[in-house]
Amino acid sequence: MTPTTLLRVAGSAARRLLGMAVTLLVTSFLVFSSLYLAPGDPASFLVKGRSASPQELLAIRQQYGFDDPFPVRYWHWLEGVLHGDLGRSYLFHQSVGEVLAARLPATLLLVGVAALLIAVLGVGAGIVGALRRGTRTGSAVLLLVTVGAAVPSFVAAIVLRSVFGVQLGWFPTIGNGTDLLDRLHHVALPAIALSVTFMALVTRVTRSSMLDELRREHVEVALSRGLPRRTVIRRHVLRNALGPIVTVGGLLVSGMLVSTAIVETAFGMSGIGSLLVQCVDQLDFQVVQAIVLLVVAVFVVVNTVVDLVHPLIDPRVRAAGGAR
C-alpha cells in the first residue's frame, strides 16, 4: 500500500467512526426522550404500592431528580453514560452495568448459537436451493423458506418447548443451565426458535444471490476451461455471492438481539431479552434505556464492521471507496 492509499483508508475509517459516534448520540437522545414521554410514574412504582403521602413522593422525586427539566436530566444521564455509569436500577438496587453484566453471557450464548445455526444451515440450504433449482429438493427448500419466514419466534418457541421439551423430554424447558454442556443443552431449543425466521431470510438471500452468480458468463468460462463444477461453484459462485449474504447477516444480528426478549421469556431464561421485558413492565427506565442503547450500539458496530469487510469481499468496492 502506498502512503496515499494508507491515508485514504485511514481517512475513510475516521469518517466512519465519527459517523458511528453521531449515530449513537442521536439515538441516546431519542431513547431518553421517548422514555421520558412514556406514561407511568417511576416514583409511584418505587414505593411499591405502599401508600405514600404526597410529601414522601415528592421527596423521592427530588432524590432521583424526576422533576428536573428535561435537558438537565438528559445531560446528567449522558454524562454518566460517557463515564461508563448507566445509572441505577430501581428494581434490582444495583448499578445498571452490574445488572446487564450478569445477564449478558446467557444472551450472547443464545445469539451466538443461533447465528451459528443460521450461518451453517441457512447458508447451506440456500446453496442447495440454488444448485437444485427446479428439482424436488429445490422446491423443498423453497417451501421450508416460506414456512420458516411465516413462523414468528414466539410460535416456534411454544411449539418446540411443548414437543421437544414437555412431550419428548429431550430438552429442559426452563432456566439457563450450569456448566457449559448444560448451558448448551438449555440453549438449544431457544436458539432454534430464535433462528427460524432469520434462517429463512438468509436462505432466501443466499439462494437468490447464488442464482444471480450462477448466470454470470465467467462461470461458463471457468467451466469451459475444464474446472470441475464443484470447484467453480466454490471459487466463482459462492465466493461472489457472499456480499449480500454478509450484509443481510449483519442486519440480522441486532434483530436477533431484540427477539431474545420473546424467546428468553418463553423459555424462562435469564438474559438481556427477558430483562428488557421485565424492566419495561416494572417501569425501570434506567435499565430499559441502557438495553435499547446497547442494541443500537451493536447494530451500528456490526454494520460498520460489515462495511469494512466489504472491500475484502469485492475489490471493486475498494476502488470506489475513496470517492465516498
Binding site: E217, V221, G226, N240, I313, D314
Partner: peptide, 25 residues
C-alpha cells in the same frame, strides 16, 4: 472425455472479457 477436450485440446475466447473473468479474483 469432455474435461480432456477442455483442458488440452480446445479453448474458447469469449466476447466480453469483462464479463468472462471473475471480477473479485
Amino acid at each position: 472425455t469432455v474435461r480432456a477436450v477442455r483442458t488440452g485440446k480446445a479453448s474458447m475466447i469469449f466476447q466480453d472479457p469483462r464479463a468472462g473473468i471473475n471480477p473479485v479474483r
